[in-house]
Write a protein that binds this DNA or RNA. Structure first.
Lengths: 215, 215
DNA sequence: TTGAATACCAAGCGCTTGCTTGGTAGCGTT
DNA sequence: AACGCTACCAAGCAAGCGCTTGGTATTCAA
């Protein structure tokens, strides 16, 4: 494992990102983004994020990759299957990315900051395309599909809980802090613009850290 | 104004709640809940909250009040018009309720706590049926409809901002605190159960206050 | 007694939706 | 050359959707 490679916020182009994706594809937990199935998943994620699941049609997803709507069902059992797969792969990738960032940080407080930055980058489309779908479209999933995603989500949340526990936040209730934090961070999606001239993402992370882990 | 009538969390049955509604109806800013239009709005709010806007059909809303689907369009121009009206009336009512609670509290810190409790009660369906729709279904609204609701929403938010400014939260940035707070509180919808045997709503409000306004 | 307004029904139109079916082109393997 | 696999097309079905239209029952004021 390369210790000096802190995951950057510059998107999907840089080498360390591609390396992470490649290793996850090799593990079999991520679909190859170059494959037809992979390209469909990316197109669907983009559309679901942009317009929402219910307002996105399978015809639009198909058109995005240049095939007809019927051909989608060669790769997925149903429209919901697409959403479920997107959510699973997004979760797997986000988890791997955050684990990487936490391992690279040194102090407990820096580790917590790394988590915050990671999730903010994910929410704002700087690092994990489709991440916001996990929050917004949760109810569009059937109970069975929810269980599948939840199993992966638990692994993601465990990193958070361990990190919060290490940082000694007020009240010493990591689960509660995480719950308030995930809400606060998710909601930044609807007001924070990382490319604006005001608050930067790094500034925002500092402000959040100041409130949830003062000292 | 009756100063001793703190708005309770017991739902829609108690006298002070009915009095508040009646006065808003008299002002013309709320539809009479007994009227056909009012009953449709309540049914729609319930269904939108339960199943989401896209997954609720006008036929279901109509059936809920015992009429046929076509008859709905005697009262509303479109399905979206129903959603927009629901959101407007929910906002008006929530604002009135919170203004009342803030006025009844004495210290700045207690006023902030009153806001937190008010919004938690609203989110968890204890006081303002349909409140969660404002958060979850925002994107289901056309830009024009969004503007209409936003104008009312601003009045609601102003109460929050003034109250936060008075309580001197860390960083002294009321707008930022409110933004993190609204996310944290909204998200409690997906994990906090006010009727459970664990944390009570009042306990939760205390914990939130401890983090966002320590002292 | 008339007329307007309100609230609703009965029927169905036009459109979109997710998804199915039967078939084909290209490609690597044997 | 024959096979099988992957990826896709062409056509369309069945169902559900929001919404329209023309008409009726009831109520209440003039």
């Amino acid at each position: 494992m390369q210790t000096n490679a802190q995951v950057s916020a510059q998107g999907n182009g840089d080498p360390s990102t591609q390396q992470l994706i490649a290793s996850l594809v090799a593990e079999g937990v991520l679909t190859d983004p170059e494959s037809p199935r992979g390209r469909l998943l990316h197109a669907a994620a983009r559309l679901f994020e942009q317009k929402g699941f219910a307002r996105t049609t399978v015809r639009e997803i198909a058109a995005e990759v240049g095939i007809l709507s019927g051909s989608i069902f060669h790769h997925f059992a149903s429209k919901e299957d697409i959403l479920c797969t997107v959510m699973q792969e997004v979760t797997v990738y986000a988890r791997a990315r955050m684990a990487h960032a936490v391992a690279a940080a040194e102090s407990p407080r820096e580790k917590l900051r790394a988590c915050i930055v990671c999730e903010l980058e994910a929410i704002h489309g700087l690092a994990v395309p489709g991440f916001s779908i996990l929050v917004v479209e949760w109810r569009s999933l059937s109970p069975d599909s929810q269980k599948k995603v939840l199993r992966l989500r638990d692994e993601y949340e465990q990193i958070w809980l361990d990190t919060i526990a290490g940082a000694h936040c007020p009240g010493d209730e990591p689960a509660l802090v995480r719950r308030l934090l995930v809400g606060a961070l998710s909601h930044t999606y609807s007001w924070f613009k990382p490319r604006g001239r005001g608050l930067s993402l790094s500034d925002l992370a500092d402000r959040v850290l100041l409130i949830f882990a003062p000292q």
